[in-house]
Computed example of a mutant assay.
Amino acid sequence: MSARDPSDQSVSPSADAASAPDRDIWSALRQATAARIGLGRAGNAIPLGEVLDFQFAHATARDAVHTPLDIPALEDQLAPLPLLRVASAATDRSTYLRRPDLGRILSPDCDLPEASETCDIVFVIADGLSATAIQRHAAPVIHACRAALAEFAIGPVVIASQARVAIGDPIGAMLKAQVSVVLVGERPGLTVSDSLGLYLTFGPRPGRRDSERNCISNVHDHGGLTYEGAARTLSWLVREALRRQLSGVDLKDDLPAAVTGPGAQPQLPTS
């Protein structure tokens, strides 16, 4: 068999070109998403590096669910704010995962004192499904939110273990808060395992429905919502909730552009 003449243009060089890094058709799309796309292949399998990355992400997500919250370290980050500790009726992590209902109510042994005076806002920190998110982001988010809501009467920060969002309802009622804000570790994924969410409820009391809450989600430092952005959004929602005396589906997150822009300060609407 004779060698191919290099000048013969009848044979396409596409196979060589397709393997060149600058011809990777997925590279532009990867810049727009953290999703696993265009992973390539090694023979009839996914490349080993991608398999190991997937396994590492899965292990990180499992760790986020099962790693216990380091409450003393969190309290140090929150100092010098007044703090209270409570626990849900779920006695351990296994029970918490199998019985979601127990994570929504306070332990029968809870000795949370009933407040003698009302307050505008109470912040509740719940470990949720990612204690990692709470450990990393709860304290800076609390500090940013308190700065944005400095003119309001804010109650003590309550740290709730083995807790879900609805645990803020009995806590808010006992502390006589007009608004409860629950910071919770969101269910971890294979891209982000430390995402934090904030749930606002006007008039917290046992029996509130999820439709009566407003959610600010995806607070993290991997391209998610910034601490300052979360604080601006929450500040607007709190003011609107107090003005309209409601929260949830009837309170739309329709912030004016001036509020969401960099350095913007929320303003109480006049109409």
Rank of each mutant, 00 (worst) to 15 (best):
E240F: 07
Q245W: 05
I171Y: 05
E186H: 07
L234D: 05
V51A: 13
S161L: 07
L237N: 05
A257W: 13
D63P: 02
E50I: 05
R205K: 13
R62P: 06
G168T: 01
A241H: 11
E186I: 01
C119G: 12
L149Y: 01
A87Q: 09
L225Q: 06
L225I: 15
R99P: 00
I37H: 08
T226Q: 11
G263A: 04
A87N: 06
S211I: 09
D53Q: 14
P156A: 04
T201H: 08
P13H: 12
G263M: 03
R104S: 02
T95K: 03
T226S: 15
A61H: 10
P6E: 01
R98Q: 08
D109E: 15
R41N: 14
A73M: 08
V192H: 11
A45Q: 14
A264R: 09
S7E: 11
L198T: 02
S19C: 04
E114P: 01
I159T: 02
V238R: 04
A153V: 15
D169W: 11
R244P: 01
A147R: 15
Q162S: 01
I167K: 01
F56T: 14
D120Y: 01
Q55V: 09
L97K: 00
I167Y: 00
L39I: 12
G103N: 01
R187G: 03
V157A: 01
G248R: 05
A42C: 12
D120N: 08
R187L: 08
V179E: 02
A34F: 03
L29I: 01
S116Q: 13
I159R: 00
G203S: 12
S107L: 00
I159F: 00
M1Q: 09
A57E: 14
Q55H: 12
A264H: 07
M174A: 15
L106I: 00
L196F: 03
V259I: 08
A138N: 06
V249N: 13
S180Q: 12
E240W: 11
S180A: 15
Q162F: 08
R98H: 07
A230E: 10
I154Q: 04
E114S: 06
G261H: 08
P6K: 11
I134N: 01
G185R: 00
D250K: 13
V165D: 03
E75H: 00
P266Q: 09
G38Y: 11
S180D: 08
S94C: 04
A64Q: 10
G103W: 01
P188C: 09
S211F: 05
I37D: 07
L84K: 04
A61E: 09
P188G: 10
T67S: 15
I142F: 04
E186F: 04
V11N: 03
S247Q: 11
S88D: 06
P156G: 03
S88Y: 03
E228K: 14
C110H: 00
A257C: 14
S217R: 11
W26C: 01
S10N: 13
H58W: 10
S107N: 09
V86C: 06
V51I: 15
L242C: 08
T132S: 15
P204W: 03
P156L: 00
L175N: 02
I216K: 00
A35G: 02
V249H: 12
D22H: 11
